[in-house]
């Protein structure tokens, strides 16, 4: 694996995303788990193919970004395309994105049990 971003000139990123910006991509969190619903088809953009292969098992957005060596925001745009065409589904984190809201105590208790069992 190469270090992320080494040859990511703005031009290349522009080409990858067809020049679109973050329109629908805010739907994805860094840790939204992405699952493929279809196998890649011939002629598909290579990044889309790679994502569909990787996400045969649930894979977090940030892991896709690390594996592809692309910035997170670019990966989110690629994912919005795949979501819009039904090729992937997304399992969003159940925690609130509101900064002032604290997590549910039962979630924290589950986390504690999990950590203690490590």
């Amino acid at each position: 694996m190469r270090r992320p971003g080494r040859d990511d000139t703005p031009d290349r990123l522009y080409t990858l995303t067809g020049g679109r910006s973050r329109a629908d991509s805010d739907a994805f969190d860094l840790v939204t788990l992405v699952v493929s619903e279809f196998e890649p088809t011939p002629g598909m953009q290579s990044e889309h193919t790679a994502i569909l292969r990787m996400c045969r098992r649930p894979t977090a957005v940030v892991e896709i970004a690390a594996e592809l060596g692309l910035p997170v925001s670019i990966v989110k745009i690629l994912l919005s395309d795949l979501l819009a065409t039904g090729r992937i589904t997304a399992r969003h984190p159940q925690t609130s994105r509101q900064p002032a809201r604290l997590p549910d105590p039962t979630v924290l208790e589950q986390v504690l049990v999990g950590l203690r069992n490590l």
Binding site: V31, L33, R57, T59, R91, P103, V107
Partner: peptide, 18 residues
């Protein structure tokens, strides 16, 4: 899949925390 040293999550993984 392609050769990879990635360790995938369980297929039941549904809630990720940070």
């Amino acid at each position: 899949g392609p050769p990879s040293d990635r360790t995938p999550l369980l297929s039941t993984a549904s809630n990720a925390l940070k």
